[in-house]
Write a protein that binds this DNA or RNA. Structure first.
Lengths: 273, 273
DNA sequence: GCGACTTTGTGCCCGCGTTCACAAGCAGCT
DNA sequence: AGCTGCTTGTGAACGCGGGCACAAAGTCGC
């Protein structure tokens, strides 16, 4: 992560070296605040990504009537090691009871709080092609959803046509519509050439968080955060691994892949062997 | 920044300059081989992701007739710092001339070689919903494409229907079809409940690299590499940032976001200030 | 009420990836 | 040739995130 993304690609996370210098372990006197701000600020990006995964797993558990869960159980369900899971949870506070585990309900609430899911985010999708359609219909997923409240495109045939219940507007209306509906997250699913222009309009509309599916490096003001999902890059990374193992072990696993059941890496980063 | 290369099917030849392969710094005995294997193995995942980005930028430059480029130019175009770019390029060999820069053509070829793009990868997409459609039509993107050669779903109405030129087959046929078409990369775009079963079938068919769009933690053998793209997680990470800055600076940027033009982070990670 | 057991929370270490800064090397001019 | 200026390639330091292992803390049973 992904990545790195995804995220992470995987590989992920970077920040200005100056200020985070003193996070985590440092007591940090919580200068003028409730401390939650400073805490929220200190959570590493990678941990945030995993928290989102934990949230999904926990939501599933809650629906199945599971009342409490240990870090061990949760960690295998989420595909991470239990120490990392506990550390991640410790970033948001101490909500477990030693010797017992965590209460599912509590954990769900707290993670939602930290991820800012208590106030519903309003999402705008720009570019209503196949991908845009998919995103517009993505509305309800486990836990609270991100309501898609605005759709934009340039195709005249699409204007006013409802997709997933929301009529499509012209991208020229981005500023007014986004302001009116208090859009906080913009999703760019346009062809590459249009991406920067669309991005500029979103920024102009006051959107400060953007998820970009177009394979373009967006230029944005420092105040705006961009996350990128790049299909081509993902495929190329996989291609790299295909090539690497082809080079590296020209003739081995002719054996029909027995189920060893390793665990998929949460960051979308490949297991290196 | 306009690029958008569709067809650039110039058959280029590749050939690894065997000499420079194993030298440089690492002693690394290069046990039984050309050393390229060891090198390829040593490239960090994060660097691979960036190389893919460089490749796209370079392809665009080549189409515009740019002959050579310095690390500085390329780094700003790709949105990374120049030192990192040079280090990334150094992983694949020394193809620059000091005092001058890099030859675009050479760099493109070498990156393609390392990413394994010289042998075309065959991709299968499972789950032909909106997202599946989008992926099936994704075939041609800058540089060489990944040919999608197989599509699968369970919907009887879709059987045999061509999408993006390829008829949809039933997921029960995954093993046979994938084997026949030598699929090396599988893409899962199914609803969550079906993902694990589909994954198992792909693995059974010998696919060792999987790109998973379903919000599920897949269980796979150790030999299989999984990358995950999780829309919900991406949105939640952005939501986290919205919440964080809302908490942290309740009343500041009333100013209409002036164009400072920071540069989007290549890892998809937000620029934090 | 006390001891034993279980599980959390975290201090510490380690390795990877990023960044800095500089030496090495090439081109072009005098 | 030799000097100058520029850019690459990389050694070395740094900082973050991951993992281990243990102390703290609470529960359960007797």
């Amino acid at each position: 992560m992904a990545q790195r993304g995804q995220s992470d690609a995987a590989g992920r996370s970077r920040r200005a070296p100056a200020e985070n210098a003193a996070e985590i372990t440092t007591p940090m006197p919580a200068i003028g605040g409730n401390g939650l701000r400073d805490r929220a600020r200190a959570i590493p990006e990678a941990a945030v990504a995993r928290l989102a995964v934990y949230l999904r797993v926990l939501s599933g558990m809650r629906e199945q009537g599971v009342g409490s869960v240990s870090s061990e159980e949760l960690s295998v369900a989420a595909g991470v090691n239990s120490a990392k899971l506990r550390k991640d949870l410790s970033y948001i506070g101490s909500y477990g009871t030693r010797g017992v585990g965590y209460e599912v309900e509590v954990l769900v609430d707290q993670i939602e709080r930290v991820l800012g899911l208590t106030r519903e985010q309003s999402v705008a999708v720009v570019g209503i092609g196949n991908l845009g359609h998919a995103l517009a219909n993505y509305g309800g997923f486990p836990g609270r959803g991100f309501p898609v409240t605005a759709l934009f495109d340039v195709d005249p045939d699409l204007m006013g046509v409802p997709v997933g219940g929301i009529p499509v507007a012209h991208i020229d209306d981005i500023p007014s519509v986004c302001a009116a509906r208090e859009v906080t997250i913009g999703v760019i699913a346009t062809p590459p050439p249009a991406a920067q222009a669309v991005c500029d309009r979103l920024v102009e509309a006051g959107v400060e968080c953007i998820l970009n599916f177009a394979p373009v490096v967006l230029q944005v003001p420092e105040t705006v955060e961009v996350r990128k999902v790049d299909l081509a890059v993902e495929l190329q990374i996989l291609s790299f691994h295909v090539a690497r193992r082809a080079d590296h072990a020209p003739a081995e696993d002719a054996t029909p892949a027995q189920r060893v059941n390793g665990v998929a890496n949460p960051n979308g980063v490949a297991v290196r062997r």
